[in-house]
Design a protein around this nucleic acid. Structure first.
Lengths: 237, 237
DNA sequence: CGGCACATTGAACCGACTCAACCTTCGTGG
DNA sequence: CCACGAAGGTTGAGTCGGTTCAATGTGCCG
């Protein structure tokens, strides 16, 4: 194992994810480490970005989970996507950007300003952005054409894939920052129905969920069962 | 009315939309006009971009409707978004991009290569991209938290807003390239149910749909009824 | 006039929701 | 160390929005 690879392995999940998206030189890695020196800790249930308000500079999630969310006038809540360590938020290219969705922390989150102007790192951002979009499309498929059981399985598979990139899911087992109600609000279901379908998945041996830890004993089989295809956004690599 | 404004008014819907998204100088407009000289006509039901394949260079839709679509292994179809004149397709920033969704023409479409390297025009592209993302989020809300009637109304309102930008909807009345089955496949419903809910909207006087022409007698009232908020992606302007 | 695509209708069915109760876990303070 | 409360998970029974399937209607184009 090379020295560079070792330093990646020893580094934070966020850096790990970005390094997996684009080839980063030791210099790039240390720029990321420096940026994380300016990290800020944010309590759970705080707004990082507020819908309709100006977007603050781009930030990198260093630790913890957040979610893009929209609340309807009558109180209905819809999670649009989940944001995990290594994900970017507030990266916009239009002038004077206004946020089109609120971003709220789900547990205690650490964020830092996303370093700009470094070509290799910007390359990783572009990959990240492409993956984000692919995941949004995945969310549309889930809500539009999958039934409740498939929705739950598909989302857990997505989270597992994404957390694996950051080294936060090992052997298809990861800490989840969601409860059944949040899952319901992401999947267009009620928490009661999520509960029942989760039991079905558990009894089938497809999902093990104890406390805040989820394990997917056979992701490949589960993926086949719900018709999930792995996301690829580039032919490079 | 200035000479520039006149020339915009006289120009194609696609240019009209881009000019509405960013301030374009006469030079920029003529670059767009030139690009449209290399237009290509594509028959209905043809793939402009194929999922999993490399993305061809970015293109501008000059005329006609297209849609991003995904087909599940078992044949279920989900339209992810609709693409109208002035919309961009295939604009990617990662290296060697692979398409994450198929783009298919819905009727006869005219496309041209999107001119690159012109700052003002690229500015319009960025605005367009931001709107695209906002519309994807809108689609998630529709599928996740709106009922059938609200979904239909919300989508028609979105189409009306977008077509108005391009000058293709006048007095809230526009030509629609969709039938009830396509609407169903976009909204996660069956065509039978779309038919029934459309009748409800018609009887309530909220939608007039005759042949391929749709009119929304009172968009503001309808928007209030389904809780739709207008999209804003920039504080500029 | 025939045929095709699309729209419309009816009746039975079912997946997911609603509402309300109850249970479990866990942290906290007496 | 136990009592308590809060948050989240579980269960049951009834209801409903949307689906399914199959038939019928309608407009258009060659």
């Amino acid at each position: 194992m090379s020295a560079a690879a070792l330093s990646i392995a020893a580094t934070s999940p966020a850096v790990r994810r970005l390094a997996a998206l684009a080839a980063l030189a030791p210099d790039d890695l240390s720029i990321l480490q420096d940026a994380m020196g300016a990290s800020r800790r944010v309590l759970a249930r705080r707004e990082l970005i507020s819908e309709g308000k100006p977007v603050p500079g781009p930030m990198l999630i260093v630790d913890g989970w957040a979610a893009r969310v929209r609340i309807l006038p009558d109180g209905r809540r819809q999670f649009l996507s989940f944001l995990l360590p290594g994900d970017l938020i507030g990266m916009c290219y239009q002038p004077c950007p206004l946020a089109v969705s609120t971003v709220v922390t789900l547990n205690e989150v650490v964020v830092c300003p996303a370093p700009l102007g470094v070509p290799a790192i910007e390359g990783a951002y572009r990959m990240s952005q492409a993956l984000d979009e692919a995941n949004l499309l995945g969310q549309i498929i889930r809500l539009g054409r999958l039934n409740a059981e498939e929705r739950i399985a598909d989302l857990l598979l997505e989270l597992n894939e994404r957390l694996t990139l950051a080294g936060l899911s090992v052997d298809d087992s990861f800490e989840i920052a969601l409860n059944q109600e949040m899952l319901a609000d992401a999947l267009g279901l009620t928490s009661v129905h999520v509960n029942r379908m989760l039991q079905v998945l558990r009894r089938a041996g497809d999902v093990v969920w104890k406390g805040s830890r989820v394990r997917l004993p056979d992701p490949a089989r589960l993926a086949r069962r719900v018709g999930r295809v792995p996301v690829r956004v580039t032919a490079a690599v």
